[in-house]
Design a protein around this nucleic acid. Structure first.
Lengths: 302, 302
DNA sequence: AATCATTAATGTCATTTAGACAATAATAAA
DNA sequence: TTTATTATTGTCTAAATGACATTAATGATT
């Protein structure tokens, strides 16, 4: 029995909930799928699926088995890919998941050059601040705010992710320039909504962390809108410096220096990290993308 | 092409270094192995093995591929085992690796009862202080001094692993009873040789760690011999309390109370841990062994 | 250097296994 | 109750694997 084929059929049936659909996606008759899975069940001595003519349900043990073999199938495919592309030019689909702000401002502009340089690599970039099922089956590269999930995943620090505080000249003229945290309660704040909620303003006074969030003038997960609001003089904004530097240089925004410093977390070493599975670095498309991103982003000097 | 079969053949050829031997272990002609691997290489578009009639060498990419697919094969087998044994009685081979001292004094006596209770589980216990390739392919359960290698491995604390200091009454009569670390340089020590070298005596004085190891009267990785030497009055011995309690109760050894306390590492939370792969807990033989060991060892009250 | 023994590869045939296609049975929806 | 969809089963065909004998290559032995 070709167990591997049976497993692929089984996985697809679980995912589609249908023998017919699974069969279609492999371009074989449904009867073949039915027979292979029946073989598999017989050889395992357990029933994996509860069939009725209209619905296919998975059994408890079938579900457990599916979760394990699905991972195995993905890894086998990755191993095959490693061998197939070994010492060849970068080619294939490259799925990148990135934080929205970083993606818009830094990643997407950079990847145009990448696409020209490696035309056979088809980019599939998705921007989201949610933390993805990271580098398991759905993503080749992920860019996230600092954390290193486990030892099989390599995390390269692309840049610092220091937050700075800014406001428009017009705002400061009207409301004054705050220089210490206690001033902030008299101001208005613009807040970035992370998946975990709006990012607060924190600062450390007398070795104790305090929240010094000002009344809200606006909250959004859309960084560009927040910046526009800040430029329009609606309030004080705290965001990563790589998203604000251009507006400071142009004079549209002015950086505020509040002592003690404002932060958005008690954690000190914030950074933007590039994440990928260690053992896949030898796949050419992965290798060139990692090398390219690390080089280009670091030479931006944030 | 039945890739899975090809992978099994390939893995065996790598391990044995011979098509003929690999073929024998599967009870098929060598020609079959040759063809399957040729198929595999063709489908991958790379050569995995360098053949000559006498020696089979693995290519660089073949080696990488082998390392990855070998892990995949092991995991697939484990997944199959999970399904096959689901809701059945505990059965099969159970490989346990344990530290020597713990194995001799605690594990082996306990497992006699286990064997009677679960006669269909064939025990394969190996004692070694080396840290094994833990719970990957060669061991189902491992018992080790405190560490938790990664997130897929469950580590249950079986007992404390506190080291205590003892000596024979005759030794103390002759050399006096040390009560503080500075006294030790005038004494003789018996030292356990771990794989990393003889365990030193450390203590914390004025927030600084100092080594206060006494001149050696004996060094061995054989705990029983060290205990005998101590009973014979050869020197002071520091070992886990579960290995010494019996001799203290019988009066053959006397526990010394040195302040500040002696340790063998600067780490505070020493323990004996039972390690196994989380996802295998549902395999009956694993489950009953884990439950049995945790219950029995904990009720010993160390 | 020539021979020998071992080992992997190849050719050919038999057997096993998967797929194609039609027919059947079961069931949810109309 | 009827209808449409879906999984299963039967039968035949095609493909893949194994068996066995033979060949080619190579390291060891004389």
């Amino acid at each position: 029995m070709d167990q591997l084929r049976a497993l692929k059929y089984f996985a697809k049936v679980v995912e589609t909930g249908s023998f017919t659909q699974a069969a279609q996606s492999f371009s074989v008759p449904a009867s073949s799928v039915s027979r292979r899975i029946a073989d598999l069940e017989r050889s395992l001595g357990a029933s994996l699926l509860k069939r009725s003519t209209r619905v296919v349900k998975i059994t408890e043990i079938g579900q457990l088995y599916y979760e394990q073999i699905n991972d195995i199938l993905v890894r086998l495919e990755q191993s095959d890919e490693l061998v197939q592309h070994y010492q060849s030019e970068p080619i294939g689909q490259l799925r990148i998941s990135s934080m929205v702000g970083f993606g818009e401002r830094i990643l997407l502009p950079l990847m145009e050059e990448f696409s020209q340089r490696y035309p056979k690599v088809v980019l599939d970039i998705s921007l989201s601040d949610e933390l993805s099922t990271l580098a398991r089956d759905d993503v080749d590269l992920a860019i996230r705010g600092g954390y290193a999930p486990n030892e099989r995943v390599q995390a390269l620090k692309l840049m610092n992710n220091d937050f700075i505080v800014v406001a428009a000249p017009s705002y400061l003229q009207k409301h004054g320039t705050p220089t210490e945290p206690d001033h902030l309660s008299q101001h208005r704040g613009l807040y970035f909504r992370s998946p975990a909620g709006p990012l607060p303003w924190l600062c450390q006074v007398d070795e104790q962390w305090r929240e010094v969030t000002a009344p809200a003038a606006g909250i959004s997960n859309e960084g560009k809108w927040l910046v526009q609001q800040a430029i329009d003089g609606q309030g004080i904004l705290m965001m990563p410096n790589w998203g604000l530097q251009g507006f400071i240089d142009s004079g549209e925004l002015i950086q505020l220096h509040i002592q003690p410093e404002l932060r958005i977390t008690t954690n000190t070493d914030l950074g933007v990290y590039l994440l990928y599975q260690k053992h896949r670095y030898l796949v050419p498309k992965i290798k060139v993308a990692v090398d390219f991103l690390v080089a280009r982003v670091r030479e931006m000097g944030f």
